[in-house]
Simulated scan of single mutants.
Amino acid sequence: MAVQAPAKKTDFEKWQDGIDKAVGDPKWNEWDCDIQMAVNEYNRHLSGTTGYVQLDWRFIKAILWVETGAYNAEWGSRPLRIGVPGDPGLSSLLSGNEGGNLILPPAWKGKMTVSSVRAIPTHNIRAGIGYLLMKLGRYEYRTIPDADPKVYEIVVKAGDSLSKISEAKGSTVEMMQKLNPTAATLRPGQVLKYQKASVQRVITGWRSISTATIADRYNGGGDLAYEVKLNYTLNALRKGTPRICTN
């Protein structure tokens, strides 16, 4: 009777074997302390925003293992792979057009650049975390009062409108409507109140963080097995011992 040859492992099974072996390899814990430090910075910075739940650093470590891994050529420069050729994520984060300016801690604004994120692994890790959090945030444009709390007055002239006055005085129509609730129609000689204010983008809430939302918001569907890989990696990480960090 012929002996049946063992079934050939699929690429995914080979990948699983690699993760299982990584759990006992200290090399794969190299960025643990940098990840924890960066996550703590973001958690402190965003803790006052509506609905923010502290980010667990293990999610980031799992992303890092899925994105590269200790023996990938990107491990020593771009472990989270943000900023690789063809990836628009870095420019969207640094431009501020999608809310990145609200996500980045003040100490990293200006310090983190396209060049540094592509070459310095600690910058790459921080940029990757920032991009993920940016994609998890919910935003709206709202009227925000200026640091000057004083309420001023202005006399309406012919041809004036709330829009014209607010633009000239550094306020917003919404703020003027709030201070002058009965001013539906303007008349020359009418006295209106105004306060310095501007329309700004603000964080109004957060999407829940899970392997599903990470796969959708960070990977964007590029790898259909991304969520499965993250779940497998997180389970594997629970069996290992992370690097001991002093801070």
Rank of each mutant, 00 (worst) to 15 (best):
M37F: 01
W65K: 03
R238K: 13
G189P: 13
S163C: 01
E30S: 06
H45K: 05
D17M: 06
N231D: 15
M176I: 05
S161R: 08
N72R: 02
G240F: 01
T213H: 03
Y71L: 11
L102F: 04
Y194T: 08
A236W: 01
L132N: 10
T10G: 13
K21G: 04
K229Q: 07
Y71E: 15
V156M: 12
S47D: 15
K135I: 01
L224S: 07
W15N: 09
L224K: 13
G96V: 05
Y194K: 14
E13V: 01
A184K: 15
V53N: 04
T185I: 10
G220W: 04
I35G: 03
G99M: 12
F12D: 10
T143H: 02
G18K: 08
E30M: 10
G221D: 10
T241M: 08
G222Y: 15
A184I: 10
M175T: 13
V114P: 06
A184Y: 08
G76N: 14
N40G: 14
A184C: 01
P26I: 14
T233A: 13
D160N: 11
Q200H: 15
V228R: 12
P88Y: 06
E227V: 03
T50I: 01
A168E: 11
N43F: 09
E74V: 03
Y42T: 05
E67A: 02
Q190D: 10
